[in-house]
């Protein structure tokens, strides 16, 4: 019975762990740090949605709060996007897969025009892609961005599900179902049914068994809360993987949110693939605003190793709002690696 219980727990946990990453990525639009990115084949671009009439310059990543005039903006990260025609289509999400709809599901639709609510034919936009659609109704939609390869006839599509004005409970109902199901399996497998029958016969005090019976549910609840909490902290303290993939870098600014026109210091934290801190590395920093074609107004320097994989970086100043990048070169006696950190102010 104990073995059964362990397996059950393991399976539930595994399910949860496997399931968790897809929560943060809806189709081709993903959050990276504070930025919202869309991946169209090998192209990447910043992606944002605005409802200027309703919420002025407030930025949305995918779900938008109400029907009405909505502006889709893509600011290219991959400069080749400036030279290729970009096609944009919004359809009703009839795939039945909700948030997990993928390109295959869209391709399976026979008459896409019948469910298309907005279509912008392929156009070359050298600076920025913009599209405007006035959503007459609330609901669930799929956005499809299609781009041609610069040389070949290959086409790439990005599909991102989003909701308009649907006050979504998100994945909470799904979680509750999973938790209840796991609980049921556990309860049955651990002989709960038998005990229940005895209990009803002997009028045994059920309170004693409550904690044990609800254990998977509790685990789910806790992990869900932790998930929520950790996704919050991910926003505040995102992490970046080095170009070789062997290092993960996080930073803490001594001033939050990141200030403009104010000199301040950071603590960088380096850890390897196993989550162990990386000690005694040399870090050099350069960077700037690629969009503005200018570098930093200062020359930030790593001044001290603080222990436990933490490094002090002094002299950081951002002199305007926008997207900034920091290029880190990390050198130890064993290896050299590079990381690109992007932040938006």
């Amino acid at each position: 019975m104990n073995i059964m219980r362990s397996i059950n727990l393991l399976v539930s946990s595994l399910l949860f762990v496997l399931y968790a990453p897809s929560l943060l990525a809806h189709g081709s639009v993903v959050a990276e740090g504070d930025l919202c990115l869309i991946k169209i084949g090998f192209y990447t671009s910043h992606f944002k949605i605005f409802q200027p009439l309703a919420s002025k310059e407030r930025e949305f990543c995918e779900d938008i709060p109400a029907s009405g005039e909505s502006i889709f903006v893509m600011e290219y990260r991959h400069q080749e996007l400036a030279n290729v025609p970009i096609e944009f289509r919004i359809i009703n999400n009839i795939t039945g897969k909700g948030r997990f709809a993928k390109l295959e599901d869209v391709q399976a639709i026979k008459d896409i025009d019948a469910i298309t609510v907005f279509y912008q034919p392929p156009t070359i936009e050298p600076q920025v892609f913009t599209a405007l659609h006035n959503f007459e109704q609330e609901g669930n939609f799929l956005g499809i961005v299609t781009v041609k390869h610069p040389q070949t006839d290959q086409y790439y599509s990005a599909v991102f599900p989003f909701s308009v004005g649907v006050n979504s409970w998100g994945l909470i109902p799904l979680f509750v179902c999973f938790a209840l199901l796991a609980q049921l399996i556990y309860w049955t497998s651990s002989g709960g049914f038998g005990r229940w029958r005895i209990a009803t016969k002997t009028k045994l005090n059920k309170r004693n068994g409550f904690v044990i019976k609800c254990r998977p549910m509790l685990i789910f609840a806790t992990s869900f809360l932790l998930m929520g909490a950790s996704s919050e902290t991910t926003r505040a303290q995102p992490s970046w993987v080095s170009d070789s993939g062997s290092l993960t870098v996080t930073f803490k600014s001594e001033i939050n949110p990141l200030p403009i026109n104010q000199m301040h210091n950071w603590t960088l934290h380096l850890q390897d693939q196993n989550g162990m801190p990386v000690a005694n590395a040399l870090i050099t920093l350069t960077g700037g605003m690629p969009v503005h074609n200018h570098g930093f107004p200062t020359n930030p320097v790593m001044t001290q190793y603080l222990g436990n994989g933490d490094y002090r970086v002094e002299g950081i100043r951002f002199h305007m709002q926008g997207d900034w990048v920091l290029n880190l070169v990390i050198t130890t006696v064993d290896f050299m690696d590079t990381v690109l950190i992007s932040v938006t102010l």
Partner: peptide, 8 residues
């Protein structure tokens, strides 16, 4: 305010 395109 933030600019919808480019930077304020």
């Amino acid at each position: 305010p933030l600019a919808l395109i480019g930077h304020n």
